[in-house]
């Protein structure tokens, strides 16, 4: 029974972290799935959100600025707004770049942000990071504190999902798809392409900032290492592509699925012996090596999905195109 309870608690942490990644994947889905913006700077916006949350809510410390002790929901709002502001500045500079150039530019910007957080010691405590970040519901008795936090994360994911579904089927969503598919055509029918690309970029970044704010609470500790690109940018890309880009459910499914694989493979590799003999050769230090197998596994999954199922597990559904034209007219006339 105790063992089962342990699995439930592990499931709660899995769902909390999966939910945070789902928000990142949804944010990326607006940018890449809807509008075709190749953002490789997810980690940067995540870091802006996380540090905003951390510095606004922690008690006064000699190690970093802060001591404002803002209420948690207000700080989360600030994290979203600040990420959006940073994204707006980035967009002003480079939203007109074509996809691959935008990828290079955003990668660079994420790295600049990471180095700022690492080097501005007076503000962020540099590589040592900010700790003792308050987490929502942490005063409840265990395990309810963890369950309540998970419920909050999942509720936020649900709300964001509903909003994004509404956006996707709205004229705004169809216009974004038009910009993604053919910018010139969209511009020719009078759409201000750069303006809408900026809009999409900023909204997506705000969600990444919100994910950062939740991550800071969940970990209770934030340092420049959390915005390290492998787990903060490229893993999110794997999630979105595996789940199905331009499909909001796909983004969420991909996030939970890939995070579960990433995390739970550790249980499997834990069963490996430290040494085994095959064909007369001794393969040693397996416990160290197996850790790298997990990283390899994620790459393999990405390769497999790109080769065999490029549209992802849940492919995009186009609301405008799939609706029969007669139904369309019926609705318009009613």
């Amino acid at each position: 029974m105790e063992q089962l309870y342990g699995y439930v608690l592990y499931g709660v942490t899995l769902a909390s972290m999966g939910g945070i990644y789902a928000l990142l994947a949804l944010g990326l889905n607006i940018q890449w799935g809807f509008t075709g913006l190749f953002n490789t700077g997810i980690a940067g916006f995540l870091a802006v959100g996380a540090y905003t949350q951390a510095l606004l809510t922690t008690p006064l410390s000699s190690r970093h600025i802060g001591g404002i002790e803002l209420p948690i929901p207000l700080a989360m709002l600030c994290a979203m707004v600040l990420s959006a502001i940073v994204a707006y500045g980035v967009a002003r500079a480079c939203i007109r770049l074509r996809s691959d150039y935008l990828a290079i530019a955003t990668l660079g910007i994420a790295e600049i942000l990471r180095l700022i957080f690492k080097n501005e010691l007076w503000a962020t405590n540099g590589p040592r990071g900010v700790s003792q970040i308050p987490r929502a519901f942490e005063d409840l008795p265990p395990p309810w504190n963890a369950i309540a936090f998970m419920a909050m994360v999942l509720l936020i994911v649900l709300v964001v999902y509903l909003l994004m579904e509404r956006a996707r089927v709205s004229p705004w969503g169809r216009m974004m798809a038009a910009i993604r598919e053919n910018e010139e055509a969209a511009a020719a029918i009078g759409k201000h392409v750069a303006h809408y690309r900026t809009e999409s970029f900023v909204i997506g970044a705000a969600m990444m900032g919100l994910a950062g704010a939740l991550l800071a609470q969940y970990l209770k500790q934030i340092d420049p290492q959390v915005s390290e690109p492998v787990t903060a940018t490229f893993l999110v890309w794997v999630m979105l592509i595996a789940g199905g880009s331009a499909n909001n459910r796909g983004a969420i499914l991909g996030a939970f699925l890939i995070w579960t694989i990433w995390s739970a493979t550790q249980i499997l590799t834990g069963f490996l012996p430290n040494e085994f003999v095959a064909f007369g050769y001794t393969v040693g230090n397996l416990q160290v090596r197996s850790a790298y197998v997990r990283v390899f596994l994620i790459g393999l999954i990405l390769q497999f999905i790109l080769q065999r199922r490029p549209q992802g597990l849940l492919p995009e559904k186009r609301p405008a195109a799939s609706r029969p034209s007669s139904a369309h007219t019926d609705r318009d006339s009613s």
């Binding site: 342990g6 699995y7 942490t13 972290m17 970990l219 934030i222 787990t231 834990g270």
Partner: peptide, 25 residues
């Protein structure tokens, strides 16, 4: 000794510790 990988990163460390604490007890 139940080994888990913390990757020098708080995200991974929290995940690894949650696994050894809850699953491996």
């Amino acid at each position: 000794m139940i080994q888990a990988d913390s990757q020098c990163d708080a995200k991974a460390a929290v995940d690894a510790a949650s696994k050894v604490v809850n699953v491996d007890r």
